[in-house]
Amino acid sequence: MLQPLPTAAEPTQQVRVRLFASLRDAMGWSEQLVRLETATATPLALWHQLGLGPEHQGPDEPPTEVRVAINQQFAAWDAPLQAGDELAFLPPISGG
């Protein structure tokens, strides 16, 4: 379910963003490549840039229910993103 690229960015300036489960269903996409607009991009900045949060949510507020993984490891909302990273937004987990 790869989406068309939103920009013609060079691969070296992109991060791969992945959504799962309820978040993917709500947004209608599972994966896209996103160009890093600034040198100091964070998961929270991309969350807002991609319109993933509710409109009433302020730009400094991370969603409480969603967790972040960078390169398949849990990470903080303000962790620095590097070109080539895989960023995933994880809705509430229910294993076992």
Binding site: A21, D25, P92, I93, S94, G95
Partner: peptide, 25 residues
């Protein structure tokens, strides 16, 4: 730990075709 710290998601399917994501444990 695996119920809360491993990226699994459960979706419940009912007989009539409706489904919903489980939001917790």
């Amino acid at each position: 730990a695996l119920k809360h710290e491993v990226p699994f998601w459960k979706r419940e399917w009912l007989a009539d075709g409706r489904s919903s994501w489980v939001t917790g444990n």
